[in-house]
Design a protein around this nucleic acid. Structure first.
Lengths: 153, 153
DNA sequence: TACATGTGATGACGTACGAAAATCTCGATG
DNA sequence: CATCGAGATTTTCGTACGTCATCACATGTA
């Protein structure tokens, strides 16, 4: 048996601590440091792990308002709109979706005034047919990354 | 003036590489290793940095479907519903919001069947008055964390 | 054959600690 | 009232020590 589960376990261990040393990972998973190093390199090369980041609490640095913005867009203008949204750095997620609206974007702002200004500026685009903004009252969970399945033998 | 900007610069540098060594950060920001270490500890203690994680490409591990689920909920059942959603590990974000719906949740699923099963199971809850699911066709950007402002002297 | 392991060498790394520098506090002075 | 300066406090720094990551290569194993 090759360690099919090792990759999943490795990812899960890193989800627990993204700065864990290879040695601590090796000990935790009961394999050698070399093996951890090899598998980790593979995971990064395959694109399963796209990099490492700190989890920032934007509330703690003054971004108190989160909003979910839904847009109806002229069909052929979709790429242009999504590009614009992505380039607004305060948009943390931008999705093209099925349903009543074509785009759902999630943004963070320092206050409601800043939010209003940015959203109003966006909506001047004539290709936006309709919009709907929901202000987040409470982020129950946000950007949680869940652990991968590990099938045991 | 103390280095008010150092903390922001430190966060931004880590957003670039969450596993960067204290030494490389020290060199980049032109301060000593100890200073980096101290400020980083403080940022973690203050809760600005809540931890470190790898960025997982869930597409690459079989979670091909992302959906945005909006719910109208009986007022007094909100906490119960959000708890339920949060405990579904595949829900990566759960927001209580203003607007037409009370809750917006974003989930990841292995396929549309899995998605349908989970959503149907959710909707059996009598406290959910209405729902609306948008399937993500294209994630233009997702969980992007932006850099903090650095005011220069 | 393909994968996991162990070893050894090398340079880099994290942390603790005391010294040095910068900053702040606050009463005294002109 | 503005300025000064001694002492206290905070911040930064350099050093040293034990640990770590990386690499190459030989060994073991299914």
């Amino acid at each position: 048996m090759t360690y099919e589960n090792l990759d999943a376990k490795l990812v899960n261990a890193l989800l627990g601590d993204g700065r864990a040393s290879l040695r601590s990972l090796a000990e935790e998973l009961d394999v050698s440091v070399t093996t951890v190093s090899n598998h980790l390199s593979d995971l990064e090369a395959e694109g399963v792990i796209e990099g490492y980041t700190p989890r920032i609490d934007y509330d703690a640095v003054g971004y108190d308002v989160t909003a979910v913005i839904q847009l109806q867009v002229e069909g052929n203008a979709l790429p242009e709109i999504t590009d614009t949204l992505r380039d607004h750095q305060q948009m943390i997620s931008v999705y093209e979706v099925t349903g009543d609206y074509d785009v759902i974007a999630i943004g963070k702002f320092k206050d409601t005034d800043g939010m209003n200004d940015q959203i109003k500026a966006l909506l001047t685009d004539p290709d936006i047919k309709a919009s709907n903004t929901s202000v987040v009252l409470n982020a129950v969970s946000e950007n949680e990354q869940f652990e991968l399945d590990v099938e045991d033998a």
